[in-house]
Design a protein around this nucleic acid. Structure first.
Lengths: 138, 138
DNA sequence: TGGCTTTTGCAATATCGTTGCAACTTTCTT
DNA sequence: AAGAAAGTTGCAACGATATTGCAAAAGCCA
């Protein structure tokens, strides 16, 4: 995939199998991925450590971002245009479906500003909405 | 502490040492607590398993709620009046200080509604704001 | 108080994430 | 294109975190 290489080059990262394959997995996945999802993926069979380090590298370079969860896992999702420019924001809403358990990024839904008590200075906001997704609304 | 017993009774929970002491810890703590914080607390020295099970019981009964994080831990904080009535919402904003690393509940700051794409039905929202807190603003 | 129910703590196990190090790949230089 | 330098991978070991079964202990109710 051409886009994969472009992204890696743009971030001055060595082109390696694990990076290519894991990045492609993100590119063709709609929702967010947990570390376990990547390991489970049959086509990919890298060492756990490699997956951790790859995710860390991608996060540091603003290629993916982390999504907060309450179940003691970290989810990762691709950053869209804004992030890739280097200015790393993940200020869009994340949606977790209570039925199919998928997490998707709503890139078009911006996290609204809230008015904080005196003395609190906001730097970054994250928002996670739980509910029923598009595919499960029946 | 009288309030401790009231809360346990209201939820039809047996009065045990661990529940009393852990609940009191929440009542006298301003910010959120991680499992580790409770174990570290010198006055409390229960088995890890007991702490896990106590937190689980409290969560199920709407006494405390979980706060999503990106660092692979779960934070717990007391639910205020609204939750205790049985109708479990944790629809207030959580603030994480990037300096002192404390997490506090902003019970007065309500998570705003966002407009979701067609087909997505929201049930519950969580919002975490990172920044500098009241005590660290210097 | 006595008996039933619930909770606790121990032990064992599973999962998750990190670090050091040697072997290997990629990239750079000429 | 070949060798050197730099970066990456995989293994092994470790540490932290979380879960389950079961016997002992504590709480609850009559």
């Amino acid at each position: 995939m051409k886009e994969t290489l472009e992204i890696l080059k743009r971030n001055s990262l060595s082109i390696t199998d694990s990076r290519k394959i894991i990045l492609e997995l993100f590119l063709k996945t709609e929702g967010a991925l947990a570390h376990a999802d990547i390991e489970k993926n049959t086509a990919v069979n890298f060492d756990r450590v490699t997956v951790y380090r790859t995710l860390q590298t991608f996060t540091e370079n603003g290629i993916i971002h982390q999504i907060p969860t309450t179940d003691n896992t970290i989810l990762y999702a691709l950053c869209k245009d804004k992030c890739e420019a280097g200015h790393h924001h993940d200020e869009h809403v994340h949606f977790v479906c209570v039925n199919c358990e998928k997490t998707v990024c709503m890139d078009d839904v911006v996290v609204p500003q809230v008015k904080l008590p005196k003395g609190f200075v906001p730097l970054q906001s994250a928002m996670v909405v739980k509910g029923t997704c598009n595919d499960c609304k029946n």
